[in-house]
């Protein structure tokens, strides 16, 4: 049996550098259309190759905000509650191109970057890769644990 989702990790047992979550996401063109509709971001470079190519890109790329949005999900699952993520920041450093037939795989590794004992908050540092390329810089989530 898995623990109830509201169970939080034990703050006092955490160690800096510890990997707390990992995940791989398969993006397809469908994922981009779904995110466009859900978010209201209908920039055509996220679903039309001709428009993407007209601005010098090889083809359609994922919304940076989709990559940011999915990259924090392993942290949410580890924390047990989306409300425990009190701060989340990223830099968008490289695009994720999504092939029309093969899609794209994005991997996420979440590691404890720092622990604030007084605030009982863990800074979780994310490494987000598309193939061998790191696509987000300084991706950090602050997670408050009771």
């Amino acid at each position: 049996m898995t623990a109830p989702h509201c169970d939080a990790p034990d703050f006092d047992a955490l160690e800096t550098g510890e990997v707390v979550a990992q995940a791989v996401y398969s993006l397809s063109r469908d994922s981009l259309v779904r995110y466009a509709g859900a978010s209201g971001d209908f920039n055509a470079i996220h679903y039309r190759d001709d428009v993407a190519q007209s601005v010098g890109l090889p083809g359609v790329l994922a919304h940076g905000m989709l990559t940011m949005g999915l990259a924090v999900q392993p942290v949410v699952d580890w924390a047990g509650d989306p409300g425990r993520v009190v701060d989340y920041r990223v830099r968008f450093t490289k695009p994720v191109f999504v092939d029309p037939s093969d899609g794209a795989e994005v991997s996420v590794e979440a590691k404890i970057g720092a622990l604030d004992v007084d605030a009982r908050t863990a800074r979780v540092d994310l490494t987000v890769r598309y193939g061998e390329t790191t696509v987000l810089g300084r991706a950090q989530a602050q997670v408050r644990l009771d």
């Binding site: 989702h5 509201c6 996401y25 994922s31 779904r34 995110y35 509709g37 859900a38 978010s39 989709l66 949005g69 999915l70 924090v72 999900q73 949410v76 699952d77 047990g80 509650d81 989306p82 409300g83």
Partner: peptide, 26 residues
């Protein structure tokens, strides 16, 4: 759309059990 699978994001009862008035946004 952002691949969220935590029940507190989608299930009202799970959110209420966790102390929220309704489901929590990602």
């Amino acid at each position: 759309a952002v691949f969220a699978v935590n029940p507190i994001n989608v299930d009202v009862q799970a959110a209420r059990d966790a102390g929220y008035a309704d489901i929590v946004a990602p």
